[in-house]
Each structure stands twice: as structure tokens, then as C-alpha cells.
Design a protein around this nucleic acid. Structure first.
Length: 798
DNA sequence: GATTTTACGTA
DNA sequence: CGTACGTAAAATCT
């Protein structure tokens, strides 16, 4: 039965779906089934009722098989069959009858029917004009069916519908009042720069640079002080300067004055732009004493508003602004592209500033902006590679790899590509006939997948005695290590990383390859201990001091669960697992054997429950029966009821508003399906983000107040590293400053949390000796006659 | 050629 | 054992 137009005939909003579902066809109504319910939910989140909308489909009948391709002659679904043309005529009639102020298209085929393009990826959320009924305004978004399979599309879809609501009040495309100067002359730029600097009504402006690889030279700069004005000035055309040398000198002088004029400059990921401008041109585009007043960033704003969502400029524009997509078709018009980037950056920030106020999270934004200078400094400074150590490590691993590889080929009778899971599955589970190992599944209904990962090979080694297993692991390990060790160094012999403030959902920093200093293996937060020994301070003859928050996340959980006993154990730094075992087996904790089974069980159970693992995991870990594992879990929970209670409270909160707020006011909304996996992320979020923010507050503090005298080297989530001269006086002073900046009283759950700090010191990043301050003297822990003792620190002791 | 999967390192 | 990240090579898709 063909689907008829539904809803009021004078609706302001018209919704065009792609094609009817099974239930729609049975009932003869559009969006009658589950996708309809989802559509209704999404609309209501945007403040729209589906009953105020006229709803129809692009295809009026459900095709056999339910795929729109049935109505087209080509694979790209752009050449319609006669019946599809008929549908289009009907649709045109419907639109002309309703005369909506705005149309929402759902899915590819609806977009094609109304706007003659299937490019939903580029046009989603942008304002378009219909080609079917010219003059009619269109906003394309995903179909409910697509959102069902890709849950993260829910957020942009709701944002598109918010935009829809704002556009229902008037017909036709909004006036385009934009002024874009694509290729400003030096004179035009100078006049504009002067205006930006001196006009008191202009308090902030956006800036965006374009760079050319490999040296990140600036090819263009765009500015905007108004979402309807953008100006771009070209500097390089390919590798050729656009201006004569004297003019270019003048240009850099004006630019320097403009970027240091003290007004707020809005960037999209300014860590990149600011660092490039500083490295290449020596212009510091912010005031270090007034970071908040001179830097604004749309990436940071988007990160604190919607940490789980995509944050590219094009995407932000699609959900914040009424502009047409520009990223895809202005690639060849560099000026147009650059100017639009700048003006949309300006416009997005205006919207996000309001959104942050609405969500009451401006303080989180301020906290992240304050991290800019230290993150940029760390990226630029890098860490020195000791060539002697590096050569030794390369030799060690190359020998190990060659030996293992040769033995492996000999055993198998042919060379083995140990990095190929597919070939290893063939070798182990087919050729050698070993019992196949499978990955842990998220759902019992998921298909079983074979694996040859480390756990699987180790497990196989306990069943069969085949040297191939160990050799494969050795080959893979050495090969991977060599990749990191051999990574190219800068001319100064350093490796660098880009610390990313806005890339995680928890507020922790991530670490990835630096485009500006492309030396090293990229991520410096996952360097194995073995390799750390080749890294040292960029300044010769220095020592590296590490300070890390002790068992930080576990302490955080103790406060969050309000477990007084646990807090006391951490405060006195007693053996936690002995306590656990004591509670479980009804003994004083001091009577638990430090190497015995009871402590081992206590430790395993604590970890299992902290990470909400089930009895099957405990069974494997302890090597006991499932029944026994269940019994132990119940025993543990009965003597430690607080953790489970806390987790239940989190689940309750997720069901009420899906939102959690950490100890520093950081907000995260959990938009996924409410299942065990989501609950687990939620349990992990609070301690992870608490400690991440704690660390970064300390790091910002130490750089803002002691950045001139202390040299920060690395950030590792709950640890920071500073290098200093090796004499005891310098070391003491550094440690005292670190101690002052890392001591923070965090109000949490009606109490005050203080996480203690551990120190260590070494000539390089890897070889570190435990250290402490005792009565104004730095002491280090050394082994004397097999016993650990604290002795006063001397340079030659490490 | 671009995108996804697999394996593996850190907190 | 959990989640949070990034990278390399292989596998797969278009």
C-alpha cells in the first residue's frame, strides 16, 4: 500500500524520509515502526513534535528487499527508473501543496530526491536549496535507520533538528550578507589589521593559518571579526613567495603587532597555529601572563561541551551555523577556503560560548585553555635520544629478531610473516593443528573470532610444548621495539610529541605524532620501560626527576565510595591486598602471608570488582572452578559493599540524565545505548578524569609559576617529569617546588582528598631510583647487602 | 587508494 | 581482568 502524506497540510516543517519500512507498508503510514519512535524521540529532543510536521517518503512504496537500489538503474543510485520519476512528481506536488518553510530530509535517497545529490557526508546539517522545488529551504540529516546502526550519529541529527526548529518560522533561503576578501593585498591587510587593533568595538577576532608541508611554512593567513566577514592574505604560492622581499618584511611586522596586540584571538586548535607562528616567525601570539584573555579556541569549547563528538571545523559549522558546506568544494580556492575557515571559526565560537554558559561549564573551558602554553612548550622541547644507548638497543633487538626469525623459519620450513594474523591462524590452527583460540566477545551472540594475540599464544604454551609460539612472540616484540628505537631524530637529536588537550572524553591528555616536529615514534605516553633508558634531558649532564600520584585512581574511588577504612589504608600506606584478604578470611591483616594464596586471592578479587569483571574472569585468573569463583566474588562483595553501591548509584544517574560530573566540574554525557559496556565506561570516567584534571592543574600551576626556572620534560597521565642539574641543592629545590604544586586539596564527596606523591630520580627516563625529602634532605633508596635503605642523595650514587 | 581490523604499548 | 589513548602492518573495501 503506497504511503500517503501525513500531518497538517499547512505544516511549517516537512520531513522527507527515504523509503517506507516493513511496518510502514503494512499500516500504510510513514514512520509507524521503531524508526518512527526514534525519529519522534530525536525531534522532541530538539523541541519539535512530530505531529506538527508533514511527513512523507521519497519512494512511495517499499521495494522488494527493502533497498532503494531497486528504483535505480545504476549502482550509484543516481539514474532513476520510470517509477522513481513518478515518485518524484508526487513528492513535488506534496511539497508545493504544503509549502513548508523548511524541509528535513532523512537519508541519502531523500536528499537525492529533494536536492539532487547523494553526498550526505558533506551536506549533512548544511542549509540547502531544493532543486525539486526551487526556493525551498532544506536541511539534510541521517535516516533513523542509519542512526540505529551508528549510534554516534544521534547527536548531529538532534543538532540538525534544532537548526530545523530555528528555520521553521520563515520561508526561503536566508540572505547571504557575507563579505569575503579572498586574496587581500598588503594594503588591504594593513588597513584591516589596523582596524582590528584600534577599533574599541572589536574585542576579539578569529585567525587561521594554512601551511605547506614538510616544514609547516605559512602559506596563508585568514582573519575575521564578524561571522559575515572574512579576509585571507596569501604569502606563498606553492613554494614561491607572493610578495617582494621588502613587502613581506613589512607584512610580518604588521602581523607581529596584530597578533601581540593583546586582544582575544579565536583559533581552531590554536596549539598548532600558535606553535607554528612561534617556531617559524618568532611571534608569540598570546600573552603568557594573560592566557585566558588572549587565547580562545573553538576546539576546546567544543571539547568541553560535547567531548564525545567530532570536532572538525566543518562539523562544528554544520551544527552551529547556518552556512553551506564549504570544505569540500573550495579546496582549489585557497583564499575562499581560508577566509571561510576564519569567519566560521568566529561564528562557531559565538555559539559555543553561549552553549558553555547554558551547560555551566565555562570553568572547564578556562581550565583547558590554561593548559595551552605548557602543552606547546613540551611539544617544542622534546626529549633527547642518547645515541650510544640507542645503538646498543638496536644491536640487542636486531640480534634477537634475527635469531628468532631464523629459528622460526627453520621450524616451519619456510619464512613466516609473524605480523600477519591471517597467516598465523593458518600456521597454528590449520597446519600445526593446535586448538584454535578465540577472542573474548562483547556479546554472547557475536560471532566467535580466532586470534593469535599474546594471551592466546601464552595460553597455547601451557597446553602444548611448541617452540614456535615463543618465537612468534619474540619476533613480534623485537620488531615493534625496533620501530620505536629506530625512529628518526631531529637535527638536535630529539624526539617530539604533540600533547593533545582536547582529544579524550575523560579530560586526560593524549599524545600523538607532532606535525611541526615530525621526529620520534609519535605517542610518548606508551613508550615501554626498556626503551625509556635511551631518553634523557635535552640539556647535557642533567638528572630527570619523576613525580607521580600514588595509586591515584584507587584513592579517588575510596573517596567516591566513602570507604573510611580504605582511605585510612591509603593514608598510612599499608598493604591494601593484605587488608582485603584479612577481611575476606576473618583474620587481622598483619597475619596475611605477603606471598601466600590468601593475599593473591584478595588482590585478584579487588581488581576484578574494581573493573566490574565477572566470575568467568576470576575463574581464569585464580585457576579455580566457576562455582568457587562465584563464592569468592560474593564473599568479597559482602565485606566490601560500598563499591557495588557506588556503581549502582552511577547506573541510576545514567538512567536519569545520562550525565556525570567529576570532582572538578567536568561534564560528560553518555549518549550510547544503556548497556553493560556503557556502565563500565561510566565507572571508569570519574576516577580517570579526576586524576587527569588533578595532574594537569598541577602541571599548569608549575609552568605558570616556575616555568622560568624549572624545565618540564614529560606528562604521563598521573606523573610529570622535570630535568635539573644533578647537585643535591638543585634536586632538593626542584622536588620541593613539585611537592608544593602537586599537593592539592580536592573537595570530594563531603571530604577532602589529597593524593600523595612518589618521587624518583635518574640520569635517564628509564633507570630511576626512588627518592624522598626527609628533614630537608633528598634521600634515595638503594640496596645494601640485599636490603633497601635510604641514604642521602649524591650525584655519583645514581 | 582509502578505510577497517588486528596486535600491542602506556596510564 | 576494565577503559582511555596512538601507531604499524595487514586485511578488506571500493
Amino acid at each position: 500500500m503506497p504511503i500517503q502524506l501525513q500531518g497538517p497540510k499547512d505544516a511549517k516543517i516537512m520531513i522527507v524520509g527515504s523509503l517506507p519500512g516493513k511496518i510502514d507498508e503494512q499500516v500504510g503510514k510513514a514512520y509507524a515502526g521503531q524508526p518512527g519512535q526514534l525519529l519522534e524521540q530525536l525531534l522532541s529532543q530538539a523541541g519539535i513534535s512530530r505531529y506538527e510536521c508533514a511527513i512523507t517518503f521519497a519512494c512511495k512504496d517499499r521495494p522488494p528487499g527493502g533497498s532503494a537500489s531497486f528504483f535505480f538503474t545504476n549502482k550509484q543510485l543516481t539514474h532513476p527508473k520510470p517509477i522513481m520519476l513518478e515518485y518524484l512528481t508526487q513528492l513535488k506536488k506534496e511539497i508545493e501543496e504544503v509549502k513548508p518553510n523548511v524541509i528535513l530530509t532523512l537519508g541519502h535517497t531523500a536528499l537525492w530526491a529533494v536536492c539532487n545529490t547523494r553526498d550526505l557526508k558533506n551536506f549533512r546539517g548544511s542549509l540547502m536549496e531544493s532543486t525539486l522545488v526551487p526556493g525551498t529551504k532544506v536541511i539534510p540529516t541521517f535516516s533513523p535507520n542509519a542512526i540505529n546502526t551508528k549510534w554516534e550519529w544521534c547527536f548531529p541529527a538532534v543538532m540538525d533538528m534544532r537548526k530545523l526548529r530555528n528555520h521553521q518560522s520563515y520561508a526561503g533561503m536566508p540572505d547571504d550578507n557575507r563579505i569575503i576578501i579572498e586574496n587581500a593585498s598588503l594594503q588591504e591587510f594593513e588597513a584591516y589589521a589596523l582596524e582590528l587593533m584600534t577599533n574599541p568595538n572589536i574585542t576579539q577576532f578569529a585567525c587561521d593559518i594554512e601551511t605547506t608541508p614538510p616544514n609547516s611554512h605559512i602559506s596563508r593567513i585568514g582573519f575575521s571579526h564578524n561571522k559575515n566577514f572574512g579576509l585571507s592574505i596569501p604569502i606563498l604560492n606553492g613554494y614561491q613567495p607572493v610578495m617582494p622581499a621588502t613587502q613581506e618584511t613589512h607584512f610580518w611586522q604588521i602581523l607581529s603587532r596584530l597578533l601581540t596586540c593583546g586582544k582575544k584571538i579565536i583559533w581552531q586548535n590554536g596549539t598548532y597555529d600558535i606553535l607554528v607562528i612561534w617556531k617559524n616567525n618568532g611571534i608569540l601570539a598570546f600573552n603568557p601572563k594573560k592566557v585566558k584573555e588572549t587565547i580562545a579556541d573553538t576546539l576546546v569549547a567544543a571539547h568541553v561541551c560535547w567531548p564525545e563528538s567530532e570536532k572538525s571545523l566543518g562539523f562544528l559549522a554544520s551544527i552551529c551555523l547556518d552556512v553551506q558546506a564549504w570544505k569540500h568544494d573550495s579546496k582549489d580556492y585557497h583564499g575562499l577556503y581560508n577566509a571561510q575557515d576564519a569567519m566560521n571559526t568566529y561564528g562557531i565560537f559565538e555559539v559555543l560560548e553561549k552553549e558553555m554558559e547554558t551547560l555551566a561549564i565555562t570553568h572547564t573551558y578556562d581550565m583547558e585553555i590554561a593548559q595551552y602554553p605548557v602543552a606547546m612548550m613540551l611539544q617544542m622541547r622534546g626529549i633527547k635520544v642518547n645515541e650510544e644507548t640507542r645503538t646498543r638497543l638496536i644491536q640487542e633487538q636486531e640480534e634477537r629478531l634475527a635469531a628468532a626469525e631464523e629459528a622460526l623459519s627453520k621450524l616451519c620450513g619456510k619464512p613466516i610473516n609473524f605480523n600477519s594474523p591471517k597467516q598465523l591462524i593458518q600456521l597454528l590452527y590449520v597446519d600445526l593443528g593446535l586448538p584454535a583460540q578465540y577472542k573474548r566477545r562483547k556479546n554472547a551472540s557475536d560471532p566467535r573470532k580466532m586470534t593469535t594475540d599474546e594471551d592466546a599464544l601464552n595460553h597455547l604454551s601451557t597446553i602444548v610444548d611448541n617452540p614456535v609460539l615463543k618465537l612468534i612472540l619474540e619476533c613480534r616484540k623485537s620488531y615493534k621495539l625496533l620501530g620505536v628505537i629506530k625512529a628518526e631524530t631531529s637535527p638536535e637529536g630529539t624526539h617530539h610529541t604533540s600533547y593533545n588537550i582536547c582529544k579524550t572524553e575523560t579530560g586526560r591528555w593524549s599524545s600523538s605524532e607532532s606535525i611541526i616536529f615530525p621526529y620520534g615514534s609519535g605517542n610518548l605516553q606508551n613508550i615501554t620501560y626498556y626503551i625509556r633508558q635511551m631518553y634523557e634531558s635535552p640539556i647535557p649532564n642533567r638528572v630527570i626527576i619523576q613525580a607521580d600520584y600514588i595509586q591515584a585512581e584507587a584513592v579517588d574511588v575510596a573517596f567516591r565510595t566513602n570507604d573510611q577504612k580504605l582511605k585510612g589504608i591509603f593514608d598510612r600506606q599499608e598493604d591494601l591486598h593484605a587488608h582485603t584478604a584479612g577481611d575476606m578470611f576473618g583474620k587481622p591483616w598483619t597475619e596475611i602471608d605477603p606471598d601466600g594464596d590468601e593475599r593473591r586471592i584478595g588482590k585478584t578479587l579487588r581488581h576484578a570488582t574494581n573493573y566490574s569483571a565477572g566470575p568467568a574472569v576470576v575463574q581464569v585468573k585464580l585457576g579455580c572452578t566457576l562455582a568457587h569463583a562465584k563464592k569468592l566474588l560474593n564473599l568479597y562483595i559482602s565485606v566490601n559493599p560500598k563499591l557495588v553501591h557506588w556503581q549502582n548509584e552511577i547506573v541510576k544517574k545514567l538512567h536519569t540524565d545520562r550525565t556525570l560530573i567529576n570532582a572538578f566540574g567536568r561534564r560528560r554525557k553518555f549518549t550510547g545505548r544503556l548497556n553493560d559496556q556503557l556502565y563500565r565506561s561510566a565507572y571508569a570516567f570519574l576516577p580517570q578524569s579526576d586524576i587527569g584534571d588533578l595532574m594537569n592543574l598541577s602541571l599548569t600551576d608549575i609552568y605558570e609559576n616556575y616555568g622560568e626556572e624549572l624545565d618540564l620534560l614529560l606528562q604521563l597521565h598521573d606523573a610529570m617529569y622535570i630535568d635539573t642539574d644533578p647537585d643535591p641543592a638543585s634536586v632538593l629545590k626542584t622536588m620541593q617546588t613539585m611537592s608544593n604544586c602537586m599537593y592539592r586539596e580536592v573537595p570530594l564527596n563531603g571530604d577532602t582528598m589529597v593524593v600523595k606523591v612518589d618521587y624518583s630520580i635518574g640520569r635517564n627516563w628509564g633507570k630511576q631510583t626512588k627518592a624522598r625529602i626527609n628533614q630537608g634532605i633528598v634521600e634515595i633508596q638503594i640496596k645494601k647487602d640485599g636490603k633497601k635503605t635510604w641514604v642521602p642523595y649524591k650525584e655519583d650514587l645514581i
